[in-house]
Simulated scan of single mutants.
Amino acid sequence: MDFARYLVEFEYILNSPSPAAPYDNPAYLEYAKLNWSRMHRWLKKGELRTETKAMLERIAKPLHWIVITEPWCGDAAHSVPFIQLMAQHNAAITVEYELRDSLPFTINEYLTNGSKSIPKLIIRDEEGNDLAVWGPRPVGCQQLYDRLKAEGADFEIQKVALQNWYNTDKGSAIQQELMLLLSDVTSSVQSL
């Protein structure tokens, strides 16, 4: 599905009188509501850096991005808007969104340490060959998460700390990491 369809699916979950699992669980529905607000805030106020735009403008050959996500995912609420903003900056980039917990279950091919962690971005060439994979969160955020987990911090402490990290970062880390990936990808694609 494209981004517009993903937003329709997301909104349907939020407004459904009897949402399907896992959104029939009030906690998951509340996560989705918070993530809807967070995602729209970044779509409205998130800014692509000058160097990010310049890198995107250098992409000449078609790329297909697959974003695996779910509305309940807090990391996705902060990363997916920047992925979408970046993709929109160059017509050579097409984006497809897949829900992790629905067919075609592409996530099973892109596990993180054996886990179905999301969001996940797969960058492919026009023949469908994988060129790069990113996710589930920026390196600095992952390091914070790993440290908190090792310290035995409870879920609420982890959630607040990660939210604060994303708010402070303002999409900078994901742009920097994707620029590095795209730099490698465009070098290899243009040399073919």
Rank of each mutant, 00 (worst) to 15 (best):
E98C: 10
E98Q: 15
L99M: 13
R100F: 05
R100Q: 07
R100Y: 02
D101N: 08
D101V: 02
D101E: 07
S102D: 10
S102Y: 06
L103P: 02
P104N: 05
P104Q: 01
F105I: 02
F105Y: 14
F105A: 01
F105N: 08
T106I: 08
I107F: 01
I107V: 12
N108E: 15
N108A: 08
E109W: 01
E109I: 00
Y110N: 06
Y110L: 04
L111S: 08
L111I: 06
L111P: 10
T112R: 05
T112A: 07
N113C: 04
N113L: 13
N113Q: 13
G114Y: 04
K116N: 04
K116V: 07
K116F: 09
S117L: 09
I118T: 09
P119I: 06
P119Q: 05
P119K: 01
P119W: 04
L121D: 03
I122C: 05
I122K: 01
I122G: 02
I123Q: 00
I123D: 00
R124G: 00
R124D: 00
D125P: 00
D125C: 01
D125Y: 00
E126G: 00
E126D: 06
E127P: 00
E127L: 09
G128E: 08
G128V: 03
N129R: 12
D130T: 15
D130Y: 11
L131E: 10
A132N: 14
A132P: 13
A132D: 13
A132G: 12
A132E: 09
W134T: 07
W134M: 06
G135D: 04
G135K: 01
G135W: 02
P136H: 01
P136K: 03
R137Q: 11
P138K: 05
P138L: 09
G140F: 11
G140P: 07
G140D: 11
G140T: 12
C141Y: 04
C141S: 14
C141L: 12
C141E: 09
C141H: 07
Q142I: 11
Q142E: 15
Q143K: 15
Q143D: 12
Q143N: 15
Q143G: 11
Q143S: 15
L144V: 14
L144F: 13
Y145N: 11
Y145F: 15
Y145A: 11
Y145E: 08
D146P: 05
D146S: 12
D146G: 03
D146F: 07
D146M: 12
R147P: 06
R147N: 13
L148T: 08
L148P: 08
K149V: 11
K149E: 15
K149Y: 07
K149G: 08
K149R: 15
A150M: 13
A150W: 10
A150E: 15
A150Q: 12
E151F: 12
E151G: 13
G152L: 13
G152W: 12
A153R: 11
D154P: 05
D154H: 06
D154S: 03
F155N: 08
F155M: 11
F155R: 14
F155K: 13
E156G: 02
E156R: 08
E156K: 08
I157A: 06
I157C: 05
Q158D: 00
Q158P: 02
Q158I: 10
K159E: 03
K159T: 01
V160I: 05
V160G: 00
A161R: 04
L162I: 14
L162R: 10
Q163P: 03
Q163V: 13
N164S: 13
N164R: 15
N164K: 15
N164H: 14
